[in-house]
Structures are given as structure tokens and as C-alpha cells.
Design a protein around this nucleic acid. Sequence first.
DNA 1: ATAGGTTGTCGAAGCGCTTCGACACTTTCT
DNA 2: AGAAAGTGTCGAAGCGCTTCGACAACCTAT
Lengths: 337, 337
Amino acid sequence: MVTLAEVAQHAGVSASTVSYVLSGKRSISGATRQRVEQSIRELGYHPNAGARALASSRSNIIALMVPLRTDMYVPVMMEIAIAVATTARLHGYDVLLLTGEEGPDAVRRVTGSGLADAMILMDVELADERLPLLRGTDQPSVLIGLPADTTGLTCVDLDFGATGALCVEHLAKLGHHDIAVIGEAPAVYERHTGFAERTLDGLRSRARELDLRVLHRPCEGGYDAMAVTLARIFDERPGTTGFVVQNESAVEPLLALLRQQGRAVPEDVSVVAVCPDQVATQASVRLTSVAIPAQEMGRYAVEHLVAKLDGRGSDEVVLIAPELTVRASTGPAPSAS
Amino acid sequence: MVTLAEVAQHAGVSASTVSYVLSGKRSISGATRQRVEQSIRELGYHPNAGARALASSRSNIIALMVPLRTDMYVPVMMEIAIAVATTARLHGYDVLLLTGEEGPDAVRRVTGSGLADAMILMDVELADERLPLLRGTDQPSVLIGLPADTTGLTCVDLDFGATGALCVEHLAKLGHHDIAVIGEAPAVYERHTGFAERTLDGLRSRARELDLRVLHRPCEGGYDAMAVTLARIFDERPGTTGFVVQNESAVEPLLALLRQQGRAVPEDVSVVAVCPDQVATQASVRLTSVAIPAQEMGRYAVEHLVAKLDGRGSDEVVLIAPELTVRASTGPAPSAS
DNA sequence: ATAGGTTGTCGAAGCGCTTCGACACTTTCT
DNA sequence: AGAAAGTGTCGAAGCGCTTCGACAACCTAT
């Protein structure tokens, strides 16, 4: 293992000079810098992370807490994680992967031990147990998701309220009057993650303004659950012609069942999904959808943290404006054609 | 920030005694131990990770290199990552998330800086650039996947050869003679990740023994690509009654297209998939499948590393025996009924 | 020519922990 | 009873780095 001191000796300078070449915190003459850099290369020097962390009280690590569940939104989570890791590297940070399993203890452990300089939390609940801890520390953090009380916190999320509104507007413009919303599994609502409710609220209030009828049904993923849900919907509102789906694992079953019942998409029935683009484009019908901007959220989270660690930036809540992409699953309402 | 010294003072012992209470590396009397533990609790002490790493040259971190691609096997990757993180915590390790992006440089950086004590590599190619580096260091590592040359390496993977054989045996037992294999996208084969080829080899050689005909077609995911592929298959081998699919994003399109063509599953055509259980059970037909044991691989990788770091364990290649679960997508061949 | 300001480099202290050898004390064996 | 072995604790060194103050050496303005 090559040390700073060896590099210094090799280059004929003092250790501190090498350190300053590395960090750029003091000016170094061109000649010295080149000599040192040359030595670093020749010796294959890598600064020791532990020593660095100890001396500078900076680990250059960002902790990312992902949910333990692997049953929901997996691609989104993964995409966020990758975006976080990639962006972090761009800024000289590494990423520590924590699972939600440990809960608040993980937060305590990480902040207490100086393992990480900052944290990103995913899968935030409305009254998340970890929030008081975050407020009580001076370690920067970003939530991906929106808790009930955001005072003193930085959050980023898709504007799900606007997303709901956008979906219903699109359907309204096409002449649909009876809208069914197929939501996440009941468990998601019970967990109070918030995003599902926000979508619904946004959607309902816009629907009221536009004078549309909305029927909301939570739904487990899979074909069997979807079949039951769909039957109930058409039973209660036979005139339903517009669907908004916010449940990845219900998308394909819905399309299959509609097809099976002889309801053509988009001729008889229109479907708008709230899902990652990949799901929307790989479905059996290319879906009109509002994308979940996973990459953008991950990137934003890291960049905000880096700014804060550099002494810039402040607390804020950023809601990303939804974008609706029209594909092949929505069209004029049958009565309007 | 509470330090070891403060704990020591509070408990009325020396710093080294506290350290030994924490590590258990020397015997400590019950009374002292309790006093120290009490102080730790009262002060809310957390050992500083950097100092610890520096003094002990152990970071208690395991690096996990995940592929950058988010287009393939995402749920499997995620499941492995979660299993790795969970198992690591059980053994007192944290997990550093690296993306494949940096390639061999990441390996150099991590081993050089002592950021991590060990590494787990996913998405290993047959002649992976990172292998020479791993062989040239004394830092333990585990590959999830199988390169061409495994000398001096520890690897864990599903036994894809046996998997292929198992699929074809199952179909043979049901009386199918003409088997079509729908593989990964051509890019996967070109990348030489090995697993796809191994499945195919195992499948083909067993098919030869059982006197079956096999037609292999790589396939991009999605409906359009699948439609083309399927048409070609039935064109070339109209008598095909058995399918083996090793491509998550081809599964649902295949089922939909078969249905659309009036070929009932499993009455007219049987389908065996190689995919995570979640995909198999959530598909429109509950699929007979060989599961990809993501959790098991993740857990094994960590446990092997921990053993190695503790001075136990040695290099070895572990191939996990495939298990075929019969569900609703396979049945007797039509001619045999 | 001299005070004042820059610029580039160095030495030393110290970050918080682990670990080694030493040492006092107790127990066990002959 | 004395030597040998085991127990529990301490002090000090040192892990590899950052950072602060000091200080030559040089440049500019007067």
C-alpha cells in the first residue's frame, strides 16, 4: 500500500504539499504539481479512505436508504439508485446502500459514525419515524417522496397532484365522462406513502371542475385481482370509457382483460398510466402515460446534497411537473366519435 | 460527537478497555463491561467509522458492483442487491454501491483506497476486464456469474446448463418433440455474459440425448419483436409445441401472441420460463418455470466473503442446482393426449 | 531601497481508534 | 511455599491523512 509520505519522498516534497496538490486547497506551482502527479502515477497511489475521513471528517459517501420491499416499483427504485450512484461519482462521492429494514436505527448509526456525509431516503411515509432524527442532525438529507410535514426538510418528488389532474384533463379533452381510477394495492394506501392519495386528490378535484365522474378502486397486481376489480367497475359504472392506472403490475392485466372482453383500446376505452416509460412502451398497447422521472429525482437528490455539503443550497421542496406522453392507448370517447 | 475517550472517562476506565469491550478481543470482567456498556448507552456513543478503518485497516464495507444497464433482469439485480445488503448487515458490514460504469477503475479505486474490504461483482462477462485485477489483489471477492476462466476466483451462479437440461426434460416427459427456445436479445449474446449460452448448451445436449428437435431464436423484448420471432418459428417448425423462454420481457408478449393466434396454453402449446418467481406467478398464465435464485446468490456471496475475511473459506465455484416448479403453462403434448 | 503584499512550501499537531507489550494481581500446580 | 500460568487493565505508539501557522522567496509600489 502506497502512502502519501512515500509519494512525497518520491517527488522530493513534503507530505502536506502532496495533500494540497490532491485537494487544490492551496496554490501549488506548476512544476511541483507535475512532479507530484507524476509520482502519484508512477507509484499507483490511492489515498486511504479511512485516513482521509478521519482527518477531514468527511467520508465522501452518500447513504441511500432503499425500501426493503421488492414488490413494488422495483424498476423505479433501481433507476433511482443507479442515477444516484452515477451522479454521486460525478461529484466524487460513493454511495452506501442501506435497506429500510433497520429503520430509524440506520439513520442514527450512519450519522453517529460519520460513515456517510449525507443521506437520501426513499419510500417516505407521511409520518415517517426517521424524520425527527433528520431534523435533529446537521447532516444534510433529501427525501424522495413527500411526508406530511416538510418543515426543515428537503424533498423531491413527482407532483402527483398535478399528475392526477393531467391524466383526467387528457381524458376530458377526448370527451370521456366516466373515469375509473385503478390504484395501488390497498396495502400501499394503508402504509400512508402519500403519493397515491395525492394523485387521487389532484385527479378528483380537477374532475369536479371538469364535471366528470370518477370511480376509484385500489387493486392488487395480477390477473385475478384485476378481473374482479374490473368486473365491479363495469358493474357499477357501465358507461366507463376512461381509465387511469397507477399500478405497474395492474397495467398488463387490465389491457389483457379489456381485450378479452372485446373492448378495444383506444376505440372503446382509453387508458392512461402513471408508470415508468419502460412499462408504458413495452406494454401490449403503447400506453399514453405520465412518466415517473426516476433519473431526474435521483440526480436532483445528489446534486442538492453536494451543494449543501459545499455550503450552498437550502431546504426546499421540489415537485417535478408531470409530463403526459400521448401514445396509442387513448383516443376520443366512443360517444364523441 | 462522542468519542471513545469520553466514554472511557465516563466509565472510569482507559480507552483501550472500552475498545476491548467493543471488539471482544480481550477478556473483560463482567463489572467493567457493564459499566462501559452503560456509559456507551448513556452518552449515545457510536464509534467513528473513519478512525476505525484507519486504525484497523478494516472498513467493514463490502462493495457491490451492479451493471449500469437498467434494461435487463432488473428485478433479479434488485433482489440480489437487497439480499446482499441485508445479509451484510447481519454480519456487521455495510454495502457500497458501485455501478459498472467505471469498469476496472472502480476495482482499482476500491482496493487501493481501502474503501471496502471485499467486493461482489455482478454481470460478469466471459473475459471480464476486471478479473486480472481481482486475481492480482488479496482482497476477497465473489462473482455472481461465471467467467470463462475461474482459476483463483470464487463464483456463484445458477447452474444454467442444468437449467436448460431440466426445461427440456420436463417438456420431453410431457411428450413434446419440437422445442423452440426464445432467448435473450442478441446484444446479450454478443456481450458474452455466458449464462445464455450455458442454458442453450445444456438444453441442446440433453435434447440430443432425448432425441428432440430444438430451434433457438434470440429475441428483443416487446410485442413487435416477439411477433416476428414467433411467426418465423412456426414458419420453420410448424409442429412446435414446446417453448422455453429465457427473457423476462418476452414472456408476456409470447403468451399474448399465442392466445391471439388461438393456441391455448397449455393445451396446444407448453411454455417453460427461466425467470424470477415473481414474473412466473404474475404472468397471465401461471408459468412453469425455473426460478433464478437471486436471494440465495446474494446471501451466499456475502457469507463467503465474511468467511474469507475471517480467515476461513477458500476459492470455489458454486453452481446452484435449478429447481423447476410446475405451474399452469405446461401440459401433455397435443399429439400425446 | 524598503515596507508591504503575494505565492509556494514545510513542519507539526491531531483526527479517534486499535493493538501491543507491560504490569499487577489472582489462581493453579508441584 | 514458590514458580508458573492465567486474567484484567492500562499506557503509548501509530494508522495515513488534513490543516494551520510559519516562513522563505519573490514581486510590487512608494
